[in-house]
Computed example of a mutant assay.
Amino acid sequence: MKGVVVYCDGRIKVEELPKPKINDYQALVENLSCGICNGTDLKIIHGRFKGFNTYPAVLGHETVGRVVEVGRKVISFKVGDLVLRSILEKVEDPRYYSGWGGFAEYGVVGDWRAMEKDGRTEYPEIYYAQQVIPGNLDPHQATMLITLKEVASGLNRFGVGKNDAVLIHGAGPVGLSMVRLAKLRGAGPIVVSEPDAGRRERAERLGADVVLNPTEVDVVAEARKIVPQGFDYVIDAVGINALITQSLKIVKFNGKVGVYGIAPETRAEIDWTEAPYNFVIHFVQWPTFRDEAAVHRQILALVEAGAIDLGEFVTHVIPRLEDFQKGLDLITSKQAIKVAVNIKG
């Protein structure tokens, strides 16, 4: 089978890989589409993802695929199911490592319920998030469900709720997901700081009450005009450490600065001279798979009801794995929001 492999020097190749094998508690998935993660995938490619150093690696973790074979003890999946998050737990060729392995023609999902039923309690946590989705969803658009579920679980951890004043730095896939989900929770006002005009317009469509261009206005001064007492939540959705200090200037007394985006640098100098005396800085950079699984039905219900339009996020579909670089170029140039790659092209 074909798969996208990234090397430690940033080279990307489509290479022939062995098809994964399954055990009694797993299902084999023919991957249909995989989203390019603007955060994790790009940082792995550039060698700047904290804690990841196993190269060459098969990339990708935002997969949608169809089950084509099930192990004899599987009870949660059946042939024909459309599923999220199939991965390569390991690559059968020892020359390669798994960077989750979603950009490959086949992957594996595991049935934790069947394992628990048989008294087997040790398995990868990602099994919780490998879930069935409605078969009528477009596989390319459905890749966005993973980001939405991650963000929903992140907002739960932050505590964002009704009537909370929220400022979000960045309007990429994560920031825009935060805007939409915060709006649906009744938060407001919702303010977005984003330099790209197209993304600011999209943020307004998705529910932002005010959008600011940080290259043209003083975000702190403008934010203080909008919410003089300070925001309940100020969230970095892009991963720029300097935003922590800026956020402390506009968070309210006992408010929270949420750090969701993963910065390439793991150290920062924080100045709280202009911050209130009481505040919280809360890092949520790795939503757990259990938390992600817990919001599965909620996100699907919002999509089914039309409250979330997946097409607002997935703006481009790359026709085949061999054109993967074109997808990266669309992201780095900010021409795209979310890019999905057609695995079967």
Rank of each mutant, 00 (worst) to 15 (best):
T63G: 11
T315H: 01
S33Q: 02
S76I: 02
S98G: 09
G198R: 15
S153G: 04
G10Y: 08
K256T: 15
Y7P: 10
G119M: 00
Y277R: 07
K252W: 10
P228D: 15
K183H: 14
R120T: 06
E62D: 11
Y128Q: 00
N31E: 01
D232N: 15
R290K: 15
G255M: 06
L310W: 13
A301H: 15
F77W: 02
T245Y: 14
G175S: 04
V211S: 00
D271Q: 00
D118K: 08
T288M: 01
L248T: 05
K225F: 05
N241P: 01
E89G: 10
V211A: 04
V280C: 00
M115G: 05
W100E: 10
L176F: 08
Q285T: 14
R66C: 07
A203V: 05
G175L: 00
A142C: 12
D209W: 08
V211D: 07
K183G: 01
V58Q: 04
V210R: 07
S247I: 02
Q131N: 07
G10V: 11
R290L: 08
N278L: 03
A294H: 10
R11S: 10
A275G: 11
D196F: 12
N163Y: 04
D232P: 02
P56E: 12
E92A: 13
K73M: 06
E150F: 01
E201H: 11
S193K: 02
I146A: 05
V284Q: 12
G110T: 04
Q229P: 00
G65T: 08
D9N: 15
G51P: 07
I235K: 06
N163S: 14
T147L: 12
P195C: 12
V220Q: 02
A336L: 11
I331V: 15
P20V: 14
R202A: 05
G60S: 03
Q229R: 14
V217S: 03
P264V: 10
K225G: 13
T54M: 09
N156E: 15
D218T: 05
F158M: 09
G35N: 02
V70G: 06
R113Q: 15
R320T: 13
G47W: 03
F324H: 08
E105L: 07
L300F: 11
E150Q: 09
E204N: 07
E274V: 00
A152T: 14
V132G: 05
Q131Y: 07
A165C: 09
V217Y: 06
R48N: 11
D236G: 13
D323S: 14
D9F: 01
T147E: 13
V295M: 05
I343F: 01
V74K: 08
E69P: 11
W112M: 03
W112E: 15
K225Y: 06
T121V: 03
I299S: 00
W100C: 04
I250Q: 02
N342V: 13
Q325D: 08
N53C: 09
K78W: 09
A242M: 14
L88S: 06
